[in-house]
Design a protein around this nucleic acid. Structure first.
Length: 493
RNA sequence: CGGGGCGUAGCGCAGUCCGGUAGCGCUCCUGGUUUGGGACCAGGCGGUCGCAGGUUCGAAUCCUGUCACCCCGACCA
């Protein structure tokens, strides 16, 4: 194939090219015929399914239920919340007609000009409007609250520029939309969900994240406050990986969602929304991959162990299969997902390389030699280390090894982030160092003007005001004005 | 939406300046030999050269228009 992954370091200047090639080569996704959209292939989708299942369980453990709302939103709904319009009413796909007809000139089909919709429909860029338009009818009393709903759906934003998984015109996500009786409860839920996302990122994706609050500039359109988790990719750029928004009463007021409180007085409900998307797939790829391809964390790998028999004929394969069968049984008992690839149309060397590109955490190779010795060759994907081990007890060893790999790649990512995180007090120093990427802990005076200036001059933005860590005050790196605490500044995807 | 690039077989490309029968590598198919790190040999299938006009005896090649896609910006999860 023309796509070569070797040479990541040589191509440091063009990480995105490498990334796109990896996505294709690892059989995760490909460009669709539709502008800015992608086709997620079975292997890529299997990873997304693992993420979905894990998150879904975590949501349900907090009392959230799933529901589904329409893809198309009447245009008038988008005009209701002023700030939301500002942020979202622009780059949307619009449905204007409801019928096609045969071209009178005999060239395929054309849009029937007589079938124009009275009110255009917008393909949802996010569902706040249609959901709050619906909640109006669901919420009447304090007894109806809290309302905790999540939706797994596709959304569409007509982005100018797209990149597979990180920014596609259509993407898959979950969006939670909750209604509460009090501001405190809603804020607590908003924080709870960002904590849940951080747990998911660190425990399942093995991706360290920084929890924080967005600056006014980067805040979700229509929110009072936006919480975010920010991860660092291997090239030192930041990736916003999940957000949770405290919407205050903005949407309740725009859609007139009120409830009778315990004193029988009408009151607007308090709202929050939170979401993560297939962008997490991009985060996963860019956090762990190396020159040999994808490196999947065991907790999300669709195949955790692949077993490759090395054989010259059917008898040898049969011998290997029966020797390995109890191992496969035992692995399954231990909850390990295992694939025995006995296809005879690919040579072992091809399979080795193929599963490496796909990021399978552990590989076993078994041949005639091993059968004689009662051994197996094991390779772990994260370090590419190989060792020959006795067949006896191998399943238990692997179960433990998978946990070790999960820990190891998390630690590796954490170490990289720490190495590329700098405390910086000089704007000149910042301007020089930002070229090589990394997170910069700097004092900022809290103004949008300063933020804009930094962005203008360095292409870096305030990723977040961290929730944890050092919160001693200081002086703004740019203006010298007082600063409440250090914030994270970085270039981002 | 601004700047740059590109469009030729499933994929990656050459050919375009200087018009004259559509090329290469990989994939794929068939047969054989192979199989402990992406196999080798032989043969074969596959393209109205992005689309629409124009110039010409003749256009992948020249001209006009148009549509995609990619990269860099602006915008954004």
């Amino acid at each position: 194939m023309a796509i070569e992954l070797k040479g990541l370091t040589k191509r440091k200047d063009n990480y995105s090219q490498w990334y796109n090639e990896l996505v294709v080569k690892a059989d995760l996704a490909e460009q669709s015929a539709v502008r800015g959209c992608m086709v997620i292939k079975p292997y890529g989708y299997a990873i997304w399914e693992k993420m979905q299942q894990t998150l879904d369980k975590m949501f349900k453990d907090t009392g959230v239920q799933n529901a589904y709302f329409p893809l198309l939103i009447p245009k008038s709904f988008l005009c209701r919340e002023a700030e939301h319009v500002e942020g979202f009413a622009k780059e949307c796909a619009v449905v204007t007609h409801y019928r096609l007809k045969n071209d009178p000139n005999g060239k395929g089909v054309v849009v029937d000009p007589d079938a124009r919709l009275e009110e255009e429909l917008i393909v949802r860029p996010t569902s706040e409007t249609i959901i709050w338009g619906t909640y109006k009818n669901w919420i009447h009393s304090w007894r109806d609250l809290p309302l905790l709903i999540n939706q797994w759906a596709n959304v569409m934003r007509w982005e100018m520029r797209t990149r597979m998984f990180l920014r596609t015109a259509e993407f898959l996500w979950q969006e939670g939309h909750c209604a509460h009786a009090t501001a405190e409860e809603s804020e607590a839920r908003t924080v709870q969900m960002i904590n849940l996302y951080a747990d998911f990122a660190e425990k399942y994706m093995a991706m360290p994240v920084i929890k924080g609050v967005k600056s006014a500039n980067e805040r979700f359109a229509g929110a009072l406050n936006t919480y975010t988790i920010e991860a660092m990719m291997q090239d030192g750029k930041a990736l916003q990986s999940g957000t949770s928004h405290n919407l205050g009463q903005n949407f309740a007021k725009a859609f007139d969602v009120t409830f009778a409180n315990k004193e029988n007085k009408p009151e607007y409900v308090w709202a929050n929304s939170w979401g993560v998307s297939t962008r997490l797939m991009g985060a996963l790829i860019m956090t762990h991959s190396d020159d040999n391809g994808l490196v999947l964390p065991p907790h999300l790998a669709p195949i955790q162990v692949v077993i490759i028999p090395i054989f010259k004929n059917a008898e040898q394969l049969e011998a290997i299969s029966s020797a390995i069968a109890p191992i496969i049984e035992r692995l399954k008992e231990l909850g390990v997902s295992v694939k025995f690839d006995d296809a005879d149309n690919k040579r072992p060397g091809f399979k080795f390389a193929d599963y490496e590109v796909k990021g399978v955490p552990v590989r076993l190779a078994v041949g005639a030699r091993d059968l004689e010795n009662g051994t197996v060759e094991l390779m772990r994907r994260d370090t590419l280390e190989k060792e020959v081990l006795p067949l006896k007890g191998i399943a238990e060893h692997i179960a433990q090894l998978l946990e070790d790999i999960q820990q190891n790649i998390f630690q590796k990512a954490l170490k990289l982030r720490e190495e590329k995180t700098y405390v910086c007090d000089s704007y000149d120093e910042f301007k020089a160092k930002i070229e090589d990427g990394g997170f910069f802990l700097c004092h900022w005076d809290g103004t949008t003007e300063t933020e804009e200036r930094i962005k203008e001059e360095t292409k870096a933005t305030i990723r977040c005001i961290p929730l944890d860590g050092d919160n001693t005050p200081g002086k703004c790196m740019v203006t010298g004005r007082p600063s409440a605490r250090r914030v994270i500044i970085a270039r981002n995807y």
